[in-house]
Design a protein around this nucleic acid. Structure first.
Lengths: 342, 342
DNA sequence: TTGTATGCGTTATCAG
DNA sequence: CTGATAACGCATACAA
């Protein structure tokens, strides 16, 4: 019904050359004379030729495709990461296949399997699973297909290629900021503590407390989903506390803003009564009232660095000796305009 | 260096059957006896067999891959759309290749070309280009590879498959809401007017004015990039107006909130002095102070509907008679708690 | 500089 | 129900 695709053979026939010559000419192989190369290219264009990536991939064992697995697509932070990845990937001639794990380990495994079958040339993962040893990446490791974890990494980072920020230091600085403002009872609202990013932030929080000789109180660490709805529940729970905290260190902006909103709705003065900090520098954090102190998480750069590192690994055939760990710079954004410094 | 991949031939050899039998067994072909099917599947599993999507795609002329082109990845709305698409696609056995056009027509064309070469089975596009007749989709049309536009469609929607909301009606309702609040001078801050979504919203705005016998003043329609930075500039420009508007209908939440923020910083009372409405229902719009009246744009559903429609087109071999146009429901979210109704 | 021959792994066709 | 064979479109080793 639809005319067969024009192939290099069709071009070859038209020009009375061989298919290999056409193949070579089209990819600027040096062994082809400039003249014939131009002729072939012109003809190819004229005939509306399109290279068949599938055939090419089958032959070269390369799909020119990178796989990405993220817990969820719909967060601002994640989209900036993906934006950076897409740009870097396309510039290097790769496509991006993006999949969601929806915070389910089973789904993550399935995605890994599917991307493996799809013969991606490399894989970038922000892991759902806190598992200390994700052996379901074995097929990739065995075939030496590079895998890089970004943002949410497995627990033993030294075994894997990772791109992160120093979450511990960030957590430390945020907590320190609150302590400087004479806050004594700091609630820490965080995500799944088995996940490295959240564990690190908690470590930073503890360190800052320790430095000030303040006792760490485990009942002040609340594990949640960090979503908008969680924020509302947290606020309600806070209001029921016998003694309110005087500060809250929330592990992302979304939830921080939701908490703030609901506390304010109940008449709590922010930041006078309770000071709040977030994490991620969502665009709205600067517009919250009061503006939210947060950590600028360089999403686009993280995406770019991850993708470029992956492509580098793909291109360097020889096995890298040991995994690398890129730690990107973050930025503490202090936004309180009129705070009493201690 | 790395052991060759196990193929159906390897399995066939081990079991003394033919490769075709293995191939059939693995995809549950009815003509294979249940017994041998199970034996083959077990062996395949044992040998760590993985189907090669490239080879399969080359043979069947199907890549099991859907292409997506969007102007930018990093907006909340777009990520919800993609989240919906990814889910629907994976459920139907497809992968998603996502590309950005960065609001550049050239980039969009290049992406179309790349995805065509990559042999995607279908294409979903939120177009960058306001061009009335995007002939660079011709390769797809010619080969009868389905293309669906979502959100941002070409101008002559009747010629293409589209999934949208009724932007005109939404714009109309928002404007009407402002008029009901006795607003007389409504500034409309919008995106590129050549783009259908923005044109439609403007049409709705005009209609509402017309209905109230208010003259349409073209100088009250400002075209911008609708980003955070644009918001600041707009605010500054507003403050320089000889007579301030008493309402602003902004074509997205991000920009609306930015404008609101900067006007408030200059002492303008919102909504008393100037009432503002947004568009998209970004999660933060509910937390803005005051909360932003907006239109709930069903991103995830849009993604799901678009992907499912595309897959349907792929599966129905016969050419559809005419393009379809799915118009999704939106929801006007009125958020002003204490407004004086006219 | 170009051509020939072969194979990448799978599936469709046809035969048995 | 199963097997043999060819073909999908391209790229490469080798030959010329």
């Amino acid at each position: 019904m639809f005319p067969r695709e024009t192939t290099i053979h069709d071009i070859a026939r038209e020009l009375n050359v061989s298919a290999s010559t056409v193949s070579r000419a089209l990819k600027d192989h040096p062994a082809i004379s400039p003249k014939t190369r131009e002729v072939i290219k012109a003809k190819a264009h004229e005939m509306g030729y399109r290279s068949n990536a599938l055939a090419s991939g089958l032959r070269t064992r390369k799909s020119s495709t990178l796989g990405v697995i993220v817990p969820r697509l719909n967060s601002y932070f994640m989209s900036t990461v993906l934006a950076g990845m897409e740009k870097a990937a396309v510039e290097a001639g790769y496509h991006l296949i993006i999949m969601q794990s929806f915070e389910m380990e089973e789904k993550e495994k399935e995605n890994i399997r599917l991307l493996f079958n799809h013969r991606v040339d490399g894989l970038m993962v922000s892991t759902t699973s806190p598992a200390s040893d994700p052996d379901y990446f074995e097929p990739f490791f065995k075939k030496n297909i590079p895998v890089i974890f970004f943002d949410r990494t497995p627990n033993n980072q030294e075994k894997y290629n990772c791109v992160t920020i120093d979450n511990k230091r960030a957590g430390y600085q945020l907590t320190r900021h609150l302590l400087k403002n004479n806050r004594k009872k700091i609630l820490h609202v965080t995500g799944n503590k088995k996940i490295e990013v959240y564990r690190q932030r908690l470590e930073g929080y503890k360190l800052a407390l320790h430095e000030k000789n303040l006792a760490f109180d485990p009942t002040l660490v609340w594990e949640t989903g960090l979503g908008v709805d969680d924020g509302k529940q947290i606020a309600e729970k806070i209001l029921k506390m016998p003694a309110l905290p005087d500060a809250i260190f929330v592990a992302n902006d979304t939830c921080a803003i939701a908490i703030m909103h609901h506390l304010q709705a109940q008449g709590i003065k922010i930041p006078e009564k309770i000071q709040i900090t977030g994490f991620n520098n969502d665009p709205f954090s600067a517009f919250a009232k009061p503006a939210l102190t947060t950590v600028n998480y360089p999403g686009e750069i993280m995406g770019k660095v991850t993708a470029n590192s992956l492509i580098h690994l793909i291109n360097t055939k020889h096995v890298e000796e040991r995994p690398f760990h890129h730690i990107l710079d973050f930025e503490l954004l202090i936004r309180e305009s009129t705070m009493n410094q201690a």
